[in-house]
Structures are given as structure tokens and as C-alpha cells.
């Protein structure tokens, strides 16, 4: 089984000592400073690439018409699939999902799907018979820590960008219009969750944001807090060294402010990209209903 090489004792001590004695990080960042986040949209609708320092994640959204599940007749289907392949890091392998991969997909699932960021009811076409199945494929292209944060931003950015074909229902007949025929519609997104990972050092006294792979290897505990502009959507501290409650509460506030900040820059990028597409003669209406047909 391939494994990422452990950090050597010398390097580990160096990182920890720099942190605890003078609050310095390897790359000179502030403790609560993210690496530079870059978001680019691909040629297709619903394709987003996020780079967070050296970490790179690509997400593609796709949709197809299927039959809804028996228990949820009025809901469409939304799934997120993640795969950590050797392309990202020599420590990842194809096949059986590792513990890290299970946790990543569980957190994304809780952050985006369980918190109902996508209104699945709007994906229903004919109750019990036809619905949209929207799928987000998360591809990790480069791994240098901060995977959860990057994957969550990329998935939300791609979901905001995606358009599905317009559908019209006349009695029993369902027509799916091509993109050229009718203006495609955006997904109905209820809120925009952002994951913020906190790494704890020195018995929870030091809290780092956006740790690199090396910093992740030497941390004592981690906590992922997912927030949108005004709510906490999910908290996950899967064990690790115990942390003081006061520090945990402080993390919630930080998560909300970071989420606001990131959502703001994400929206700016999105409007810029959609405006660019409009010039090229493609449909890019921001809001549903305002679309001029024809």
C-alpha cells in the first residue's frame, strides 16, 4: 500500500518550534491567512477549477433524467463523488477508498447535500416518474493540504455555474429542449456553504487555517466547520487531541467571517465569467425567469 512519506523528526520539530516559539509558518503566512485561492471556469458550463496554493481541484457537474427513488417521489437526485487518485499524490491509490477519502466525501456530503444547499424538489419533473439526477464529480489534481476547503469551494462554484436544459411538460409528454432551443436554467441553490478547516497545535493553543500537507501531518487535531453567510451548517471534529471549548467557540465566528469573504469573491468571479460568456453569444442569465427566449 503506498503511503505518503512521514515528515522526518527534524522537520517536524522545526515546524512545531517555529510555530510555538515565534508563530512563524514555513511559507511565512499569518496563522489565519489562506494561501491564494484562484478560481477558473472551464469551457463547459459547470466546470470549475480551484487552486489553493499547490492544491488543485477540478469539479464537473452533469445532469441526466432518471426515475426518482421510491421513498422520495417528489425529489430529484443529487450526488457528490470524490476520488483521490495517484495523480494528486503518490500516497493515493485507486480502488478501495481510504480513510481520508471516506472522511472527505462524508464532510462534503454533510456540508452540501445534507444541509440542502441544492433544492432537490426543483429537480423533479414528473412526480414518481422522472427527475433530474445532478452529479458532482470532484477530481483532486494536486494535493498539498486543505483538501476539504478546496473541494467545497470548487463544488459550490461549479454548482453556481451549471445550467441544465429547460424541460416542458404537457400532460404525460416531457420535452427536453436543447441548449440552443431554449435558454438553459440554473440550479436552485438555497445557500452557499464553505468549509473552513482548523488545525490545532500546542494543546489547542495555536489554531492554524489552511494548513499545508506538511503542517497537516504534524498537527494534533483538526476541526472542519462549514458555514454560509449566517449559519453553521456542519461541524466535524473527529477525535484528536482535546481542545478547550472557548477556542472552539471562537472558531465558529472565524468560520462565518471567512465564509462571507470567500462567498463574496466567488460571486464576483461568477458574474465576471457569465458576463464574458454573454458576449460570445451564449446564454448566461443569472436569474431564472428573466431569460429572454429566442
Amino acid at each position: 500500500m503506498p503511503r505518503i512519506a512521514d515528515v522526518s523528526n527534524v522537520e517536524k520539530n522545526f515546524i512545531l518550534e517555529a510555530l510555538t516559539s515565534s508563530k512563524l509558518r514555513l511559507d511565512g503566512r499569518q496563522l489565519d491567512q489562506y494561501r491564494s485561492i484562484d478560481l477558473t471556469y472551464g469551457q463547459q458550463l459547470g466546470n470549475a477549477t480551484v487552486t489553493l496554493g499547490k492544491t488543485k481541484v477540478n469539479v464537473q457537474i452533469s445532469a441526466e433524467v432518471t426515475k426518482p427513488s421510491e421513498e422520495r417521489k417528489f425529489d430529484g437526485i443529487f450526488t457528490i463523488t470524490t476520488e483521490l487518485s495517484p495523480i494528486a499524490s503518490p500516497g493515493f491509490e485507486i480502488g478501495r477508498p481510504t480513510e481520508q477519502e471516506v472522511l472527505l466525501s462524508r464532510i462534503l456530503e454533510k456540508a452540501i447535500r445534507r444541509s440542502r444547499a441544492i433544492d432537490t424538489e426543483s429537480l423533479c419533473i414528473v412526480a414518481g416518474q422522472k427527475c433530474w439526477s445532478v452529479r458532482a464529480d470532484v477530481h483532486v489534481l494536486d494535493f498539498d493540504g486543505g483538501l476539504t476547503d478546496a473541494c467545497c469551494i470548487a463544488t459550490m462554484a461549479a454548482l453556481h455555474h451549471f445550467r441544465r436544459p429547460e424541460v416542458s411538460v404537457e400532460g404525460e409528454r416531457v420535452t427536453i429542449h436543447t441548449m440552443a432551443e431554449r435558454v438553459p436554467v440554473p440550479l436552485s441553490i438555497l445557500h452557499s456553504p464553505i468549509c473552513v478547516t482548523f488545525s490545532f497545535y500546542a494543546d489547542g493553543e495555536l489554531v492554524l487555517l489552511d494548513a499545508t500537507a506538511k503542517e497537516e501531518q504534524v498537527r494534533e487535531a483538526e476541526m472542519v466547520v462549514t458555514a454560509n453567510d449566517f449559519e453553521i451548517c456542519q461541524i466535524a471534529k473527529h477525535g484528536g487531541k482535546p481542545v478547550d471549548p472557548a477556542i472552539v467557540v471562537k472558531c465558529f465566528q472565524v468560520a462565518i467571517s471567512k465564509a462571507r469573504e470567500m462567498n463574496k469573491s466567488m460571486r464576483a468571479r461568477l458574474t465576471a465569467d457569465l458576463a464574458k460568456r454573454d458576449i460570445r453569444g451564449q446564454s448566461a442569465e443569472n436569474e431564472r425567469g428573466e431569460a429572454p427566449i429566442g
Binding site: K110, M223, A227, I232, G239
Partner: peptide, 23 residues
């Protein structure tokens, strides 16, 4: 939680929440 050192509060070891809560 686990018991903290004397004089300090109990420390949080595991914290999992799956539902949305307003701040």
C-alpha cells in the same frame, strides 16, 4: 469531553454536528 487539568475546563475531544444552526 475529557477532564481538563486542574483549574481548567473539560476539553472537547469529539464534536460532530450535521444540522444547520443559525448564528
Amino acid at each position: 469531553t475529557v477532564r481538563g487539568q486542574t483549574g481548567s475546563e473539560d476539553q472537547i475531544s469529539v464534536l460532530l454536528m450535521e444540522t444547520r444552526v443559525q448564528m
